[in-house]
Amino acid sequence: MSVSADISAHLYDEAVTAFGVEILVALVNLIGQYVNDSALSTCFQVPVLTQHGAA
């Protein structure tokens, strides 16, 4: 989806059937937030924290 920026009508219909429109919108929003966070972390080379909080 990140590459083509499109999904088929069939896949969309299956997702709406499985989750409903409201939950599907919330899921897509959450996924978008994670993609954004990942892009920013990569761009600015934010170190990954260990279990104890040190990089």
Rank of each mutant, 00 (worst) to 15 (best):
P47S: 02
A18I: 09
A55L: 11
M1E: 02
Q51G: 15
S4G: 04
A5G: 05
G32I: 02
F19M: 04
S38Y: 12
S38C: 03
A39P: 01
Y34R: 11
D37Q: 08
A39N: 08
E22H: 06
C43Y: 13
V35N: 05
S2I: 10
H52K: 05
N36E: 14
T17G: 13
V25D: 00
F44L: 01
A9F: 09
S2M: 06
V28I: 07
V46E: 01
A54Q: 06
Q51Y: 15
M1V: 04
E14A: 13
E22K: 12
Q45N: 08
L11W: 09
V48I: 05
L24Q: 02
L30K: 12
E14K: 12
M1Y: 03
F44P: 00
S8P: 10
A15C: 14
L24Y: 01
H10Y: 08
S8Q: 10
A18R: 13
Q45T: 07
L27P: 01
A15L: 15
D37T: 04
F44N: 00
G20T: 07
Y12S: 07
F19Q: 01
S38T: 14
A54F: 11
A39Y: 03
A54K: 06
M1N: 02
V35M: 08
V48S: 02
H10G: 03
Q51W: 15
V25F: 05
L40H: 04
Q45K: 09
I23M: 15
A9P: 06
V25G: 00
S8L: 05
A54M: 07
A9L: 12
V35F: 13
V46L: 14
P47K: 05
Q51I: 11
T42N: 12
D13Q: 14
I23A: 15
A5Y: 14
L11C: 03
T42H: 14
F19W: 13
A9Q: 11
H52L: 10
L30W: 13
I23C: 13
H10N: 06
A15S: 09
T50E: 00
L11H: 06
H52I: 05
V3W: 04
Q45M: 12
V48C: 01
A18M: 09
V46Y: 11
Q45D: 12
L11R: 05
A26E: 11
Q33C: 08
E14C: 13
V25H: 00
I31P: 01
V21R: 09
V48W: 10
I23R: 15
N36T: 09
S38E: 03
N36Q: 08
L24T: 03
A54R: 11
V35C: 02
V35E: 09
V28Q: 03
V21L: 14
L40E: 13
V46S: 00
V46W: 06
G20L: 03
G32P: 07
S4L: 12
